[in-house]
Structure formats: C-alpha cells, structure tokens
C-alpha cells in the first residue's frame, strides 16, 4: 500500500508515469514502424494476388499467384485469431532469437509488431479494394508497370482510408502494449499492474488510464486530421463513410 499523503508521493508518481509513458511510446512507435513497413506490402499483395488482381500471375504463373494468396490469407488469419496473451508467450523463443531477451520494452516490440501486422494488412486490403478499378485500367492504358500502378495509383488513392486504418491499428497496439506490461514488458501497463493493482494505488491506476486515453485521443485526432486533408482531395464522403464500417469489420477480435 502506498500512502498518498507521503511527501514524495506526487513526484514519485510523476517519475513513474514519465518512464512508463516513454517506454510505451517507444514500444508503440517502433512496432508501428515495423507494422507499416511489413503490413503495407502485405495488404497490397493480399489484394493483388486475388484472381483478377494486379499480381494474379506473378512470374507468369497463375498458380503461383493462387498459392501466394492462400498462404498470405492463412498467415493473416492465423495472426488475427490467436489471442494476444497466447501469442505473446508462444513467441518467446522467437523474441529471444531476435532481441536476445524476452523481458523489457524492446522485447515487447516483437509480439506487438507480430499482432499488428496482419491487422494493418487487412486495413490496407480494405482501403485498396475501395480504389476504382477504372483507375488501374487508365494507368495500364498509359503503359504503367505493376510497380507504377501500386506506387502512383493504388497507394496514393487509398491513402485516406489507410491513415484511418493506421490510427485504429495504433490504438490496438497501445492496448496490447499495456498487456505486455503485465509480463514484464515495461510501459504504462507495467505501472498500472505494479502500483495500481499490486499496491492498491487507485491514483496510479487512474493516472495511467488518463495518460493512455490522452495518447489515443491525440493520435486519433491527428489521423482524422490527416485523413481529411487527403480526403479533401479525394472523395471526402467516401473515406469517412468507409471508416466506421471498416472499423466494425476488423475490431471484433480486440
């Protein structure tokens, strides 16, 4: 039990929160970066390797496309269906291999990225599917390569819903990062468990909730702003209309 009337209580709380927030932002930031780097191409491939897609027949083989599509679908579904707490534990050997340890914020990045990548890939998939196929044809008629179609048409045109999808992804990474805290991953979740739960400090608990809420609010606001900025150019109503449906379709697992 921590005594809130102790002279160093508030400065201690502040110190603990600062460290926790820093660790959380570090975990979330790095895993988000990895998520984008891996999830974006993964999402594009998910759409592209479907029949009639841009990468329907990679290396000139329609069968290769089908196989790649099946494998990616399987991996994404697997990643999305295993509960995080199990995934986290199951990944320990892998985490140790990559980072050298499975304790601490850096180690936590591994399961966070692993859970967020398929999540974001689905978001990208949905956003890309919204792009009018007529635009792809227009680019093809101009002699565009597949890479040019992806980089000049698909990604820019799907940017607005992808940003909204990204903000939903960040929110769930923050959510999971707190869970990592409970198994010695550090961050705000660790603060909540060690001080709020184990030492019965309601003030710590409330403070952690407020900080996490503030982080989510700021990121969500930023994403909405960015999405609007790009949607102002593209179809404004469409991206906004798509987002609730988009969220509803991907949120139920979390």
């Amino acid at each position: 039990m921590i005594d809130p009337s102790a002279p160093d209580f508030w400065s201690g709380l502040f110190q603990v929160l600062l460290v926790g927030t820093g660790q959380t932002l570090y975990m979330v930031g790095v895993s988000l970066l990895i998520t984008i780097i891996v999830g974006l191409p993964l999402g594009i491939l998910l759409v592209g390797t479907e029949s009639g897609g841009l990468f329907e027949s990679p290396f000139g083989s329609r069968r290769a496309g089908r196989v790649i599509n099946r494998v990616l679908e399987f991996v994404v579904n697997l990643g999305r269906s295993v509960p995080f707490i199990i995934l986290m534990v199951a990944l320990i050997p892998f985490t140790r291999l990559v980072v050298g340890t499975f304790i601490g914020p850096t180690a936590a990045i591994v399961p966070l990225a692993v859970v967020a990548i398929p999540f974001f890939a689905r978001m990208v998939e949905i956003a890309i599917k919204e792009v009018d196929t007529g635009l792809i044809e227009a680019a093809e008629s101009l002699g565009a390569t597949r890479w040019q179609i992806v980089s000049k048409v698909l990604v820019p045109e799907a940017l607005s819903p992808m940003i909204l999808g990204l903000s939903t992804t960040v929110t769930s990474i923050i959510n999971f990062s707190a869970m990592v805290g409970t198994v010695a991953g550090g961050g705000l979740g660790d603060v909540a468990v060690r001080y709020g739960y184990q030492r019965y400090s309601t003030i710590h608990m409330v403070a952690v909730i407020i900080v996490i809420f503030a982080i989510v609010m700021v990121l969500q606001g930023l994403a909405t702003l960015l999405a609007k900025r790009f949607a102002h150019k593209s179809r404004p109503t469409r991206a906004e209309k798509a987002s609730p449906a988009l969220r509803a379709s991907v949120m139920p697992g979390t």
Partner: peptide
Amino acid sequence: HFNLLAGR
C-alpha cells in the same frame, strides 16, 4: 467515367 486520380 473519366478515371481521374482524385488525389492529384
């Protein structure tokens, strides 16, 4: 349907 890029 023109098929113009909305973002450009």
